[in-house]
Simulated assay, not measured.
Amino acid sequence: MDEDRSRLPARGLPGDPLGERVNPNALDRLTDLDKRIVVAMQRDGRASWRAIAEAVGGTVATVTRRGQQLLASGVVRVAAVPALGAYGAYDSFFIRITCRPGMQMAVAEQLIAQRDVRFCTVVTGNYDIMAELVVRGGATHFPQLIEDLQGIDGVAQWRSDLIMHVYKVSFDWGRQLYGERIEGEAEELEPEQAETCSPEHFDEADLEILAALREDGRETFQHVADRVGLNESSVRRRFERMRAARCVDILTLVPSAALGMGAETLMTVRVAPARLDAVARELARYPFVRYLAAMLDENALLCEVITPSVAELYRFITESLSHLDGVEGWSANMELLYLKRGFVETPWWRGQVALAR
């Protein structure tokens, strides 16, 4: 990463809760340039401002200023986290929770504090909260985890389902906003590649580097080196080695509403058993299908759909989903507030809750 950028703090003032400084009005004021900067950072969250300026067609000064403002306001957060295989074998479970009246936010806040919760969202419908729980060591370790988490004050009912196979995870908005394809992106969905990362790929220094970059994924290698007690070249070399081995995920998080996407929906699509894979591959072709996975129960696909409006969601359901050969029905929940994605707490949710109050 080029060190050609001055820096502004991307987090709150000392003592402020994460996200307290997020300006809710900023979510509605992103310009087209802002959105293109976000897309560029989603494709490479550690790209230099110079590289981002070249990608979006703006001047380095303007792109640097606007990009820093997006980070400082909390509208965007960049974080580097270890890949799923970094801690060895694991199984993932989709969790649906019903809470006692008025306890949704208290339960959600306790859930996102758990290291094993990968995403967490408050929803409408028959459930109050939906989350993904990654069980390190595999399903045999699940009973102890659910005993701890089901004991959270306010949890009334808990339903879990094994995620068998993930077809698609997309954080990049370029294709949906501008019809752009990522260089090298295949037209057809390719089989998921096997995990190449394992615990043996890390040592204590590697994990310290990632811990620093989890807080701010755009931190300079020199600042990280000062923090962990290594020289800059060693930190850079170690990070690039982890990245080449697919042992680190660089996430650029932004609220969908800031990009003009007003309808976030989690759908459980029931499919005829013989058509499960074929339907999944067809759904994965839609750019507004952001996440897609096969679950164990009910021959079902878990599908996150993010569209500009409810009208667009309705059009997708009536003109596309309902006509797919093998689809037998679905249930759906609107996402009201996303608190965590990719193991990273979103920086805007606390500000949105405070504004609502």
Rank of each mutant, 00 (worst) to 15 (best):
M1S: 12
R5N: 10
S6A: 10
R7A: 12
L13Y: 06
L13M: 09
P17F: 01
N23E: 01
D28P: 01
T31L: 09
D32N: 14
L33S: 06
V38H: 02
Q42Y: 02
W49Y: 05
R50E: 14
R50G: 15
A55N: 03
V56L: 04
V56K: 00
V56W: 00
T59L: 01
A61F: 10
G67E: 02
Q68M: 02
R77D: 02
A80I: 03
V81R: 11
V81H: 10
I95F: 06
R96K: 09
T121W: 06
Y127N: 05
V134R: 14
P143C: 02
L145E: 11
Q150V: 10
V155L: 05
W158F: 12
S160C: 11
L162R: 15
I163D: 06
D172A: 14
G174I: 01
E180H: 07
E180K: 02
R181A: 07
G184T: 08
A186R: 10
E195D: 14
E200G: 07
E204Q: 12
G217V: 01
E219F: 01
E219M: 13
T220E: 12
F221P: 11
Q222N: 11
R227C: 00
G229V: 01
L230A: 10
N231M: 06
S233R: 12
R237Q: 13
R243A: 04
A245M: 14
R246N: 15
D249A: 03
D249W: 03
S256I: 02
S256H: 14
G260M: 04
E264R: 07
M267G: 05
P273E: 07
R275L: 05
R275F: 05
R281H: 04
A284Y: 02
L296T: 07
D297Q: 15
A300E: 07
L301W: 03
L302V: 10
L302G: 12
C303E: 01
V310A: 11
V310K: 08
A311G: 08
S320H: 15
A332E: 15
N333E: 13
E335F: 03
L336R: 15
W348E: 00
W349Q: 00
Q352C: 04
V353Q: 06
